[in-house]
């Protein structure tokens, strides 16, 4: 297991380096002088010249990359053009909202996705199965922002149960009750992903239920519920655990949209606003952070997978 972990960690390095090259090149692919782009429209020619020297933009490109990578490794992702603040602290400001939103979303996904998936698989072929798996596919076909807008219309504007937008920090007045601001956004974000988990739990449980050990368990006269949970679901969970890495990527993508619909001060909305404001250092920084996070999560998922299913690390 240790050897496998080290092997996986080492394999991560080249991909990470290549991704960092892409993120670095991003600033250079935008038409125009990178120094002028980084400083924004209000910069004077003197500022631009100074930054060109400071960033070593007159140096060969590989030297610039080495300099940039050195800064990144020391936690310096540059300065936001819009906020005039270090990029890392701008990202940090959005982290609370995004992390809480992601946690609540995962809670809904597990709460709805897994039991409904089990129900769908155990009632395979009946109308219950058709309703749940058809319903799941329908939910996976709904644009996130459309669902969000209608949830606001019904539960905020119509019934007045939940606030429609924004999110005050849980360290502000109200404390944990401020989490009510995140209920509608997290449900919006959970819907398509829970739908995928439902279909995945169903499909992998059906796969496992055809195996010999399940037939043996049934032949022994075990209670069907016990067979479904202990023998089928626990084995099916391996495939479901593997899908959580994919779920993270989907969450990031859909969080960009959801945070925009609900005007949440998170990292997803920061990406969109930075793009519209042409705040390139922030875009570059956020992308780098997300890519690194995504790779770490994929690694953790793979390690968990190897732990759940010892056959994986032996290969």
């Amino acid at each position: 297991m240790l050897l496998y972990t080290i092997k996986r960690l080492l394999a991560l390095i080249p991909t990470l380096l290549a991704a960092s090259v892409l993120v670095f090149l991003f600033i250079h692919l935008i038409p125009g002088d990178p120094a002028a782009i980084l400083l924004g429209d209000t910069a004077t020619p003197e500022d631009v010249a100074a930054l060109t020297r400071e960033m070593g933009l007159d140096e060969p490109i590989w030297k610039q990359y080495a300099l940039w990578l050195g800064n990144v490794l020391q936690g310096d992702l540059g300065t936001s053009v819009f906020f005039r603040e270090p990029v890392l602290s701008v990202i940090g400001d959005g982290a609370e909202t995004s992390i809480l939103l992601a946690t609540m979303t995962m809670f809904w996904i597990v709460l709805f996705g897994i039991p409904i998936g089990i129900l769908s698989a155990t009632k395979h072929g009946t109308w219950v199965d058709q309703m749940t798996s058809g319903g799941a596919m329908l939910f996976a076909s709904v644009p996130t922002f459309w669902l969000g807008l209608y949830l606001i219309l019904i539960f905020s504007v119509g019934l007045g149960w939940f606030p429609s937008s924004g999110f005050p920090s849980i360290s502000d007045d109200g404390g944990l009750t401020n989490l009510r601001y995140l209920i509608l956004p997290s449900l919006t974000l959970a819907a398509p992903n829970a739908a995928l988990i439902i279909r995945l739990v169903r499909a992998s449980m059906l796969d496992v239920s055809r195996e010999d050990h399940v037939r043996t368990a049934r032949a022994k006269g075990l209670h069907p519920a016990k067979v479904a949970i202990k023998h089928v679901f626990r084995n099916a969970l391996i495939a479901v655990a593997a899908a959580f890495g994919f779920t993270f990527a989907a969450l990031v993508s859909e969080a960009v949209v959801t945070e925009t619909v609900f005007s949440l001060p998170g990292i997803g909305r920061l990406v969109v606003q930075s793009i519209l404001r042409r705040d390139y250092p922030v875009i570059q920084g956020v992308i780098l952070v997300i890519v690194v996070l995504y790779m770490i999560i994929n690694l953790l998922v793979d390690l968990a997978y190897a732990r759940l299913d010892p056959r994986v690390s032996l290969k």
């Binding site: 892409l22 990406v271 875009i283």
Partner: peptide
């Protein structure tokens, strides 16, 4: 395929957004 791995390190909509900014 290593190149594809690198591109797949970017979540789908994020990759699309980055490309659209260019």
């Amino acid at each position: 395929m290593r190149g594809i791995d690198v591109l797949m390190a970017f979540p789908a909509l994020l990759l699309a957004l980055v490309l659209m900014t260019l």
